[in-house]
Design a protein around this nucleic acid. Structure first.
Length: 920
DNA sequence: CCAACGCATGGAT
DNA sequence: AATCCATGCGTTG
């Protein structure tokens, strides 16, 4: 995307030819480069006055049907300043935007993201033809169909002609355009029309459209939909969205429009808008387009999906809100291209997103080599990602994939079942990737078959199929057996996977399995069994009730908990995971990521629930569980979602990775004991929390890693330049990253507190204690024991260990620890379980205690007679982190799955109600 | 041995 | 019947 032009020294404007030293970017040329302009021209261009200034005498001037403003419609320079009305005439972008979200002028230039490597087909683009189009003159698509006469050539290059023709813009498409037959062109025009017809229809109403079409354009210019190209009548009748908006515009008789089969042609369908809808559209026009009206799906914009060569499930159902999010407050025009529900594979750690073939071929640059091309994609937050767009030969065909999507998927916190949308921003031509959480998508996706449980939890099979990240807590409504839990896979697949630990076992050995926590009382049901997550993907369907209704990562769960405003929680660490203890019931707050800004100030990063942008807030800020940019009172400049976020993609990733690290410390969890979760009824509350937060705090849910071991040194592909998710650099002991600092700080607090309490207790019951805890000369900090706030509403079978009677159970802490020798035998099994559930915490608490004990002992040993100092603790902790974050390193765990333990711990720490007491 | 790669397989459309 | 595409799985580094 160099902005250089061959004649770098002269203004690209032929009527100017000023010489300049530093070229300024003008419009994008068909080659993808920008026209280099002199200051004057550039200014004129930027101000939108280029045409009036330099093309005043050229033909092709039109008046906006709405405001009357004159716009030169014949040149590339102003192509983005107006939209064609299907009914004829044009509307300036300003008016158009007021009316509706627009799609760009299809026949025009191209997506910059294709440019890094120009498709071959672009290279042989004939500038001549382009000139016809781009040059001053009448709107090309209405005027020069004859210039395209060779469709065969095009077909040659693009077997997927229909798509190319169909697709609205893009240089590649454009190129195809030049080779299109007249009919193709017409089709394209039609498409164009339909793309914009919303504007006309909105304002004019169905019946007016046709008439009006003449108003703006000469009859002769009106496009006749070309339906003579045989095309599969794939226009789905069941698509309300489509049918709703099919309405013949332009010259297509309205009554014909409703005949889907007749207009099944790519262009034709695009060109159509159903009469009946005209009014709806009109009505829609009046209302804010972002409103969630029933029309949302079928809004005119959807006409783009009339590229009915695409399977309905790929039709972009992007909502106005989403578009708004993508475009922000810029004047960009968004062209929804397609969407895809993420499969388990897509969202998996492989980092490969399978692209629907037709979509890939239609909207992405043509690639002739399997290696493909790097593709820059921007997400809705403005973050740019670089993916490798490539394909695999497959049955005489190709299978297109985007590689290296893991970071992005993670960033957007997507899981299987969620939907990613691909759009293009014009005039920049950027490819934008939006997303829609499964839970959200369902409301508007009849075709996507996503179902949301009544409570908002995605019922999506994909979701359940989602790979569980180690450390993740899976909450399921039903008791799941064996390893086939919550795979969300069909029975067939499960059968196939029978010999595997889990569907993920192949790629992820340490998968944590879902656990039952909610019990049968859950109202979740696979309501949509056959409904189709993706009707096509049986694997993603829920075949039985063994669904994972809810998933929460440990981190997520923890993230939900906040100390009461005036409460300073103490923190305990279990295998590197921090658990905050609350004297008072914790408050459920918006998960944030603590960090330190560039000036060393402690801050928090919080993600807006609406726009997903991350905002910086004070470290001491406490946010409600639902927080949006509008609540960013600390930074007035970022009160709006439309304001870009401060974090760069890199920083965000680092942040997320860092944030992930803690949670991922338990990754290598041994096989878990499913029974261990049976009695976690206390997790109901957590589950509810998770439900509330579902879809917004899954930062660590998709721990995907994308390594490319085969990449050669120096490889700069996306995969190599983007560190694998969750694979951030190890922390050094001296690391001062936020994670380490936080851990150190918290641990310091913890230990200080411990010291304090211990001193107090020792003064009173030293003797007694030593008798009761022969192996534990020093009482553990109460903090270690009282994980949960003693709110008194704990679950019945959970014993809340009061901090003032930490030693009431000699067997609680069983580690054979000799403070004098520094030896710890943590394999000792509890001699007696407390009245805990059968599950018995077994691991979490034990480890917690063990870890703490060991750490403390170590510290004592190292500091000899001196009481451990915060500094020493810090050091140890830092080291622990540096080693991979396992604070329990070196400790032989008593038993059970680390995940189960962790979950258990989470449950207890998360839910004040469920106080756990160590059972040793 | 593991993580990736990339082709193969087979269910779904 | 052909094609698509999600995932399997053998190979490779």
């Amino acid at each position: 995307m160099s902005s250089s032009s061959s004649s770098a020294k002269f203004c690209f404007n032929s009527t100017c030819k000023n010489v300049f030293d530093r070229p300024r970017k003008g419009w994008r040329r068909r080659t993808g480069e920008f026209a280099d302009l002199c200051d004057r021209c550039a200014s004129a261009y930027e101000e939108g006055k280029f045409c009036e200034t330099f093309h005043m005498n050229a033909s092709g001037w039109r008046c906006c049907e709405s405001c009357g403003k004159q716009i030169h419609c014949g040149c590339i320079v102003s192509f983005h300043m107006f939209v064609l009305l299907d009914a004829g005439g044009i509307e300036c972008i300003t008016c158009a935007r007021k009316s509706f979200i627009l799609t760009p002028n299809p026949a025009w230039p191209p997506p910059s993201f294709f440019l890094p490597v120009l498709p071959e087909r672009i290279k042989d683009l004939s500038g001549k033809n382009w000139c016809h189009i781009a040059g001053s003159g009448p709107v090309p698509w209405r005027q020069a169909p004859s210039m395209f006469s060779s469709s065969s050539a095009h077909s040659e290059l693009h077997p997927r002609l229909p798509f190319e023709v169909d697709r609205p813009s893009g240089i590649d498409r454009l190129i195809g355009c030049e080779r299109l037959s007249a009919s193709s062109l017409e089709k394209k025009k039609v498409d164009d029309s339909s793309e914009r017809l919303m504007n006309g229809s909105m304002k004019l109403g169905a019946s007016e459209i046709v008439e009006n079409g003449n108003a703006g354009i000469n009859c002769g210019e009106r496009t006749i939909p070309c339906v003579n190209i045989p095309q599969k009548a794939s226009f789905p009748r069941n698509s309300t969205s489509n049918s709703h908006f099919s309405l013949a515009v332009s010259s297509t008789p309205i009554n014909e429009a409703n005949d889907q089969t007749k207009v099944s042609g790519t262009h034709v369908s695009r060109l159509t808008l159903s009469t009946g809808i005209g009014k709806q559209v009109t009505a829609h026009n009046g209302a804010d387009s972002s409103s969630e009206t029933p029309l949302r799906n079928g809004r005119p914009r959807a006409d783009a999906r009339a590229r009915n060569q695409l399977l309905p499930r790929y039709w972009p159902r992007i909502t106005d809100q989403e578009l708004q999010q993508i475009s922000g407050d810029s004047n960009s025009v968004i062209t929804p291209l397609f969407e895809k529900m993420l499969s388990a594979s897509d969202a998996g750690r492989i980092g490969r997103l399978v692209l629907p073939k037709k979509c890939a071929e239609a909207y992405f640059p043509a690639i002739s080599q399997p290696e493909g091309l790097p593709l820059k994609v921007q997400d809705s937050k403005g973050t740019e990602w670089m993916f490798q767009f490539r394909f695999w030969p497959n049955n005489n065909s190709r299978m297109y994939v985007l590689e290296g999507v893991t970071p992005c998927i993670q960033s957007m916190q997507l899981q299987a079942g969620d939907i990613v949308t691909f759009s293009r921003i014009e005039p920049e031509g950027k490819l934008v990737m939006g997303f829609r959480k499964a839970s959200t998508a369902s409301t508007s996706n009849q075709g996507s078959e996503t179902i949301v449980a009544g409570d908002g939890v995605p019922m999506n099979g994909n979701v359940s199929a989602k790979k569980t990240k180690p450390g993740e807590v899976l909450l399921t409504p039903h008791k799941l057996k064996g390893n086939s839990i919550s795979t969300g896979f069909s029975s067939i697949d499960q059968a196939n996977l029978a010999d595997q630990a889990s569907p993920w076992s192949k790629d992820e050995k340490s998968v944590s399995h879902s656990k039952e926590v909610l019990g049968a009382k859950s109202s979740f049901r696979s309501k949509r069994k056959n409904s189709t997550l993706n009707s096509k993907c049986k694997r993603l369907r829920l075949e039985n009730e063994d669904l994972v209704e809810l998933q929460v990562t440990l981190e997520q769960a923890l993230g939900l908990i906040r100390p009461a405003p005036n409460c300073v929680p103490s923190v305990v660490v279990i295998e590197g995971c921090e658990f905050e203890e609350f004297e008072d019931a914790p408050v459920i707050g918006r998960p944030t990521i603590f960090a330190t800004d560039h000036i060393g100030e402690k801050i928090q990063w919080v993600q807006c629930e609406d726009c997903s942008k991350w905002r910086k807030i004070p470290a001491d800020a406490f946010l409600p569980s639902r927080w949006t940019c509008s609540g960013n009172t600390w930074d007035p400049e970022r009160l709006l979602c439309s304001v870009a976020q401060e974090l760069t993609a890199e920083q965000l990733e680092d942040l997320l990775l860092t944030n992930d690290q803690i949670a991922s410390k338990k990754i290598k969890a041994p096989k878990q004991d499913l029974d261990a979760v049976e009695a976690l009824e206390g997790l109901d509350a957590l589950a509810n929390l998770a439900i509330q937060e579902e879809g917004e705090s899954l930062t660590s849910s998709s721990q995907a890693t994308t390594k490319h071991p085969r990449h050669r040194a120096g490889c700069t592909c996306i995969v190599c330049i983007q560190p694998p998710s969750g694979k951030g650099p190890k922390h050094k002991q001296t690391c001062t990253c936020n994670v380490c600092l936080t851990v150190k700080r918290r641990f310091r607090t913890l230990m200080l507190r411990r010291e304090k309490k211990q001193s107090e207790k020792e003064a009173e019951t030293t003797l007694n204690q030593s008798q009761q805890h022969p192996y534990l000369p020093e009482k553990l900090p109460d903090d270690f024991i009282q994980l949960s706030a003693s709110t008194g509403n704990g679950s019945p079978n959970r014993k809340t260990v009061s901090s003032d009677e930490p030693d009431d159970d000699p067997s609680r802490i069983r580690s054979s620890v000799s403070p004098f020798k520094g030896q710890i035998d943590l394999n000792i099994q509890p001699e007696r379980d407390e009245d805990l559930s059968p599950v018995s915490d077994s691991g979490g608490m034990i480890k917690l205690i063990q870890d703490a004990t060991e750490t403390y002992l170590r510290e004592r040993l190292s500091s000899s007679n001196n009481r451990s100092s915060p500094a020493s603790n810090e050091k140890q902790l830092g080291g622990g982190i540096g080693q991979g974050g396992s604070f329990g390193q070196g400790i032989v765990y008593g038993s059970k799955d680390g995940v189960a333990e962790a979950e258990h711990s989470v449950a207890s720490s998360t839910k004040p109600v469920a106080s756990l007491s160590p059972e040793r």
